[in-house]
Amino acid sequence: MPITYTSGEQIEVYRFSIPVTVGVPLLALFLQAFVPRRFPFFSIFDLPLLVTIFFGMARRNPISGLFTGAAIGLAQDMLGAYPIGIYGIAKTVVGYFASSLGAKLDVENAGARFLVTLGFYLVHAAVYFTVARGMVNMTLNWSWSRGIEAGLANAFLGVGLYYLLDKFKQRT
């Protein structure tokens, strides 16, 4: 398995330019809102989640990761029909743990990224449903088949997307 445990010093920490930091999440939000109109199957993907995971793992800074996740999640909530904060909380958690994981593990290859993305998708869904049902009292039902299907789809897309976003990495 390509996931290797390394010390913090051995792992490179990346940073991104401001246009990338702001533009990529905004583009992800825009595409997520626009593309499903033409291609309904696209709604199975969660581009903002993939971007959150990517930035979290690349920066390897939990605080940066949680704020990135919170900002992206809240923006996604604003465009949705449900109360603001459900995606925010879920992506905050994902951003934090993605950064923490990135600080401890080297997740640079495709296999590791696939598994990490699949895992975080399920974590994200679990937090989302917990908050939606437990706090907002929404009548949402979880479908395991749909969840696994979406998780795998996002994991596949994530591997390709991370490869593209790697081009924007800047060494510190």
Binding site: I63, L66, A70, I84, G85, G88, I89, V136
Partner: peptide, 20 residues
Amino acid sequence: NLTILVGVLFLQVLGLAVQV
């Protein structure tokens, strides 16, 4: 890190509670 995480989550939960 954990403290900030809890703080951010708390604020969002508070916001949700207000909305509900």
